[in-house]
Design a protein around this nucleic acid. Structure first.
Lengths: 180, 180
DNA sequence: CTCGATCGTTCCGTTTACGGAACGAACCAT
DNA sequence: ATGGTTCGTTCCGTAAACGGAACGATCGAG
């Protein structure tokens, strides 16, 4: 159980220190005890959902920012193979802790594109801007129409499938934590 | 607190019943008590992060599927003063050296939206997916139609302007190096 | 109808996450 | 040096989340 907690703890501490606010101040503005927040950052507690919402709210970030599981993985080259998907690499951002790749993706309809699991901690963030796209973990894909957004951990096999007669267009942002 | 819990409860129950497995069976495969799972689905408990991981793992879904608020609170819209642009914050990535903010942006036509200079080192990356958008430094804006991409340093005043009769839609990725 | 099995809920003792208070360390001004 | 402030951690009593067991309800088989 501690694997996840320490993950959250270190991320939370980075988020807090990035804003330059003290543990005491964040605890106060979140309406929780300093002891709770300290234990959370140190990974010695197993926080309640209510606590997580309070902290995320005080930081002004979506709860998923705290909860996403990154891990420390090998950043393998990401390429989208197969005939149903073509992708164009727009930008690459190399950060000390992670690599971001921004792609524009085109998914032809009627075919399910399978993608193998990436390294642990890799997350994919898709914004659909034309058509309807079903994508995500192979066993639990999500559905999004134009203008909608979805994310998932990419360390399990995942799929892309355009729903309906037209091809789907989307931007794909891949975040790959760097091995530490 | 109950607002979120009942959210999760009903979603969890739908996920479970969609798989046709009983509460008892899911509790067993997740390694938690039936009472815990029942209370979670009924929204009468405030689950621990450990419990959430166990349930999400047993269902084979990412934790964000349980925790994300998909339909109801669809991210707060950030209204940039000037009324020509509205933006919705989709994701925030906090890295030690930089912060990434991913937004979906809607630009109404016929009005030029001015944005003041950001901190040095900030860059903006726009992918247009509907309409035609002229954007970039105020003295040298770039032009992009649907499907095209452009970037610029945002440490000078810059503008957004939808060209043509229709509003422009785009994703905006802002990279802000951390001040030190 | 009766039995057995399984459903989801409730009861209850144990475990533990919670916030308030106390703590030592670091810092600044006097 | 010294008093005052704020930092993050630890201590501790209370509130509540936990799992096991018991419960009534429901269903299918004999």
């Amino acid at each position: 159980m501690d694997g996840h907690d320490t993950e959250i703890g270190s991320r939370l501490r980075r988020l807090r220190e990035a804003r330059g606010i003290s543990l005491s101040a964040l605890a106060r503005s979140a309406g929780i005890g300093k002891a709770t927040l300290s234990g959370l950052e140190l990974g010695t507690r197993n926080p309640t959902l209510e606590t997580l919402y309070a902290v995320a709210g005080a930081l002004g970030v979506p709860l998923t920012t705290l909860v996403l599981e990154p891990g420390a993985p090998p950043a393998e080259a990401v390429h989208v193979p197969g005939a149903a998907v073509t992708a164009t690499l727009l930008e690459v951002f190399e950060e000390p802790t992670a690599t971001f790749e921004l792609l524009r993706m085109r998914v032809r309809p009627g075919v399910v594109q399978h993608s193998p699991a990436h390294a642990p901690g890799v997350t994919e963030h898709v914004t659909v801007y034309a058509g309807v796209l079903r994508a995500g973990p192979a066993d639990a894909p999500q559905l999004a129409a134009a203008g909608e957004h979805m994310s998932w951990p990419a360390d399990v096999p995942h799929v892309y499938c355009a729903v309906g007669p037209d091809e789907a267009l989307a931007t794909l942002l891949i975040r790959s934590p760097r091995q530490s």
